[in-house]
């Protein structure tokens, strides 16, 4: 309720602009940088939705961790190949058509549904609520997530083994 539409509009412009830049930039490294901006914009959106915890997680993991990993990957692969990989895209028109069609489809779906009205007042501390529900209502997915991480860790170690 406290956010003005103007802020939202600004964030939206940043988001969409940087997203377009991500997919259209020829240089891969620049693309990653634009992605970082996009992810930051998303964090801003989360803030505007009063989800501070999530904004923090977004910035830490996404804008921090994922971008770093991707940069590392680019550096490594560029080294392997030996020269700068220029980005060329394939079948731009087809891609535009298909994504445009999906956009139209989803929008038509969304815009026909009835309006929801203003957002309700916040009931208590959201972060605390997240923590509580993770350990009570969603404890099973939480534990499964731990197993997933374990598996990912094993996979990463396996990938990282030296060649015999």
């Amino acid at each position: 309720m406290s956010l003005e539409p103007i802020t939202f509009a600004a964030l939206a412009v940043v988001l969409i602009g940087s997203a377009v830049a991500v997919v259209l930039t020829k240089n891969l490294f620049h693309s990653v940088l634009w992605l970082a901006l996009t992810l930051t914009g998303t964090a801003g959106i989360f803030l505007s939705l009063d989800a501070e915890f999530l904004a923090a997680v977004q910035l830490l993991l996404y804008a921090g961790g994922v971008v770093t990993i991707v940069v590392f990957a680019i550096v490594v692969t560029e080294r392997l190949v030996g020269d700068r990989i220029t980005q060329t895209s394939r079948q731009l028109v087809n891609g535009f058509i298909i994504s445009g069609a999906v956009l139209v489809g989803v929008l038509s779906f969304v815009l026909r549904s009835p309006a929801w009205g203003p957002r309700p007042p916040i009931a208590g501390d959201l972060t605390k609520a997240i923590g509580q529900s993770v350990l009570t209502r969603f404890v099973l997915p939480f534990e499964l997530l731990a197993i997933l991480f374990f598996a990912a860790l094993l996979g990463a170690i396996y990938f990282a083994r030296p060649d015999e």
Partner: peptide, 24 residues
Amino acid sequence: YVPLHAYLVLAAVLFSIGLFGVVT
């Protein structure tokens, strides 16, 4: 106030841009 639909539309646009990137 900013309605829910605004966020949904924004998400849809981002989704389609991402799809464009994947196929292109």
